[in-house]
């Protein structure tokens, strides 16, 4: 996601944190007084820097072209083939760091738990952006040039930012917090019966990013790539039919992060 998507995911999660989790987040984020949504874009801000370049491939997972499915063992590796270097592998990794680091009374682990919290919060958001789990050759839609109404852009950017920004302008008084409130309202009405299934892992795992990634590749094939061929102009028909998908993915990311 772009700034708005990460802010929304983390703002939604923040409102669902337990007392203990709120306390822990406050301890780990002293500079932002525990305001998680203030730091959720940090991994995007640093991934260009030499010191952090190795993190840039952790924001997504590439799947084989036109195969509308995801498999950890097949897909979770970086462009050099190094295993576990993808967004789901990163979610497992930073969850593990926080579980072992935060609970360990003896501070044997020297993980930076503040960084682990910011990376985990960002990556749980990203795995819910459908095109962050999508085809290798078009780089998750980055090489698919389209028009968003009158403006030239690419399909990845449409899903990272353009749909959200158009929604804010069209429906939410240009105010992201108004959009977040509308999503949270949906969570208490339309999606109220789904929240617990979103939140729980069917496997016994502490965190379960694999089904989240499978949902995203399905959304990529059914919604993002569909009717968005290179050079096409995307307008109301595409925007109004895809906005509900974006809003649900932001809600699911927030519930699962919390």
């Amino acid at each position: 996601w772009g700034k708005e998507g990460h802010y929304a995911t983390c703002k939604i999660a923040q409102s669902l944190l337990t007392e203990e989790a709120t306390k822990a987040v406050k301890e780990l984020l002293p500079e932002s007084e525990g305001n998680l949504s203030a730091v959720c874009s940090w991994p995007d801000e640093i991934k260009w820097m030499n010191k952090w370049r190795w993190t840039s491939e952790l924001h997504y997972v590439d799947t084989p072209d036109f195969r509308c499915n995801y498999d950890y063992d097949r897909d979770c590796h970086d462009s050099s083939g190094v295993k576990d270097r993808c967004v789901t592998g990163a979610i497992y990794n930073y969850t593990e760091q926080l579980v072992t680091g935060y609970n360990a009374s003896n501070s044997v682990t020297n993980y930076n738990l503040t960084e682990a919290l910011m990376f985990l919060s960002h990556y749980i958001g990203d795995v819910h952006q459908p095109l962050h789990v999508s085809f290798t050759t078009d780089e998750g839609g980055n090489t698919i040039t389209v028009r968003w109404y009158k403006r030239k852009t690419n399909l990845h950017h449409v899903w990272d930012s353009d749909i959200i920004e158009s929604a804010m302008k069209t429906f939410y008084d240009k105010d992201l917090n108004v959009m977040i409130s509308a999503i949270e309202k949906n969570m208490t009405t339309t999606w109220s019966n789904d929240i617990s299934s979103w939140a729980n892992c069917t496997s016994a795992e502490e965190v379960c990013p694999d089904p989240w990634a499978s949902e995203s590749i399905k959304c990529s094939c059914n919604y993002a790539y569909r009717n968005a061929t290179p050079g096409s102009t995307l307008g109301d028909e595409y925007f109004l039919s895809r906005l509900p998908v974006v809003e649900m993915r932001l809600a699911q990311g927030g519930v699962r992060l919390a």
């Binding site: 969850t95 919060s121 919390a258």
Partner: peptide
Amino acid sequence: ATLNQIFTPYASVSQ
């Protein structure tokens, strides 16, 4: 769900 689980006191520390 993830952060609440991680920061539950005495959360199950995985092997």
